[in-house]
């Protein structure tokens, strides 16, 4: 009998001892498979796309600018290190339809065989990396279609000789694979296909390229960005153009990302003159080694509508 009493008393004491209310919830408020945020601060790494998309009902007004060659024949003091020239300019509006799907329209000056470029783009966030590594990488799909509005050349062999409207078109498709390794380091691999409907003799209509990029954050608001594309142009195409004194280079860009709350400001240096993938991947003929790199910037202003 005494034991029963003690047992019951024990029960009671047990109950009174429970004053630390925090134990009641355990890990209730910790959610699993939480998506990783801010792999990059912007929808672009430098010129190429990051896995990030705009959020639903967000409008992004973007201005990108590439100046002229910093050094070499066209650079130096006489052009104020390229600042007198503008290689390429892009103005665009981009919009988040859902948290995963964004679309955009842009006008780019164009630098390469075609100019006066109108671009329509879409990016879809297929997978988001999660904090518990249930999904180890983020995967986004990007595609654009670009039309040139320039007057057709009269020379039939030119890339800008347009027989029909479709000759004005080019396309880029990308799979963007990214991982944020920690709060300071994010890396991206971007298999890319650029298709141009019309190219000059011995150039390639379809060009595969592999992009690699990354960000290292020095502080909460300042990050270093690097971006590189390796186009798999056929050797015979390379040789043909090399024999005519035109050499292709792989675009390499380095930049700084400064976040000021609402704005993301990119300052970068790159050897490519063009801003759009459709041009800077297949048509970069300027190289860092001859001072043919330039200052560029991206301004992004995001509005919640």
């Amino acid at each position: 009998m005494k034991y029963i009493f003690l047992l019951l008393l024990g029960c009671s004491l047990d109950c009174y001892a429970q004053d630390d209310l925090s134990k009641m919830f355990g890990n209730d408020s910790v959610k699993t498979h939480e998506p990783v945020i801010a792999t990059y601060k912007s929808t672009r790494i430098i010129q190429g796309h990051s896995p990030e998309t705009l959020k639903k009902r967000e409008l992004d007004f973007r201005v990108a600018h590439h100046f002229g060659d910093l050094g070499g024949e066209y650079g130096g003091a006489k052009t104020f290190f390229g600042m007198d020239n503008s290689s390429d300019v892009r103005i665009a509006f981009e919009y988040g339809i859902t948290d995963r799907l964004m679309v955009g329209i842009g006008r780019t000056k164009g630098s390469g065989s075609l100019t006066q470029l109108y671009e329509g783009l879409a990016k879809y966030r297929l997978l988001r990396q999660t904090t518990d590594d249930h999904v180890p990488v983020s995967v986004s799909l990007f595609g654009n279609a670009v039309a040139s509005a320039m007057t057709s050349s009269v020379t039939k062999s030119d890339a800008s000789y347009f027989d029909k409207f479709s000759d004005r078109m080019s396309y880029t498709g990308q799979v963007i694979l990214a991982r944020k390794f920690n709060r300071n380091l994010s890396l991206t691999l971007t298999p890319t296909l650029v298709h141009r409907n019309r190219v000059v003799y011995m150039d390639v209509n379809d060009l595969f390229a592999l992009g690699a990029g990354g960000r290292f954050k020095f502080s909460k608001r300042l990050g270093l960005l690097v971006e590189y594309f390796y186009p798999f142009r056929s050797q015979e195409s390379k040789d043909y153009f090399a024999a005519r004194g035109q050499k292709f280079y792989n675009p390499l860009a380095v930049g700084l990302e400064i976040e000021t709350g609402g704005h993301v400001f990119h300052v970068n240096f790159t050897n490519s003159t063009a801003i759009l993938e459709n041009q800077f991947i297949p048509e970069t003929t300027t190289t860092w080694q001859q001072g043919q790199f330039r200052w560029g910037f991206n301004i992004s202003r995001r509005f919640s509508l």
């Binding site: 009493f5 019951l8 008393l9 029960c11 009671s12 429970q18 209310l21 209730d28």
Partner: peptide
């Protein structure tokens, strides 16, 4: 004794702790 014990226990089950999730 048994009832006293029971009572003690029951008074504990009479709710003191409330939660909100």
């Amino acid at each position: 004794t048994l009832f006293a014990g029971l009572f003690l226990t029951l008074s504990c089950f009479a709710q003191d702790i409330y939660s909100c999730k």
